[in-house]
Design a protein around this nucleic acid. Structure first.
Lengths: 126, 126
DNA sequence: GTATTATTGCAACATTGTTGCTTTAGTGTG
DNA sequence: CACACTAAAGCAACAATGTTGCAATAATAC
């Protein structure tokens, strides 16, 4: 296992994701940063966290990656079988507390899942 | 309803998707074209077909859109509740014949679904 | 304090997709 | 067929997201 270091910027990313109501794009995380951080840095921080399973991400319908903390995931998770919802209007991606029953597939080795539902959220519909 | 015209290039796109074993990216469709076609043209052809429900697309983990014909979809579909599988190695996206049971959501208006499983396909695993 | 090297910053780039405008070419009508 | 209408296609320039290589910085162990 590679050695890791604790840095202020990594902590900020965790803080921001902890307080987030929705999954966040890199752009949104950058904007939420209290100090100036390079985008490459955020990309690499998230990449490291994703490898460690501390963070997971979904790809939105818009092709952008949206990140969230993995608080409620068990330690040696490889799957995140809950659903995500993306609003077409405000683009926000939300984790929904629904588990999806994943079928057994003979010929494929499944490593991750991304279940995305797209529509209009309650804030935008009214 | 807006008037549409039949063109050779639209037909080629349908031909290519008809013979495709997997969903295809715009890049792949362009390469499969027997004649030179502008990428903007392909984007707009797919956009029109998607509106008409003739074609559907999934967003891969890589953020790219992958297109497939909607042959087996019922006419007034809005949902495509089958699963897609993307291979991390060869990047190919495949439609799988598994339907997902979609939960009822009170506060959200669901318009589409994208269920993506990611891993290694049978061709790449061996 | 010093050495090691993980982390960050920077700049340049790659890829995917979009926009505005002009040109081309289906389609319906006389 | 000739013509008008306008959907579709082409082109160029752009925007957004994400990546890469390398130099600078700073966390950690000794």
């Amino acid at each position: 296992m590679k050695k890791t270091r604790n840095t202020q910027k990594q902590d900020y990313v965790i803080d921001i994701l902890t307080n987030a109501k929705h999954t966040m794009s890199v752009e949104a995380i950058l904007k939420a940063m209290p100090i100036k951080v390079n985008k490459t840095t955020v990309y690499r921080i998230l990449e490291r966290f994703a490898e460690k399973g501390k963070v997971h991400f979904v790809t939105g319908e818009d092709g952008k990656a949206y990140y969230a903390l993995c608080n409620d995931c068990n330690v040696n998770h490889e799957m995140h079988n809950h659903i995500h919802f993306q609003c077409k209007s405000c683009k926000k991606v939300t984790c929904l507390p629904y588990e999806i029953e994943v079928p057994e597939l003979k010929n494929f080795e499944i490593q991750e899942t991304q279940f995305l539902m797209i529509g209009i959220c309650d804030m935008c519909i009214s």
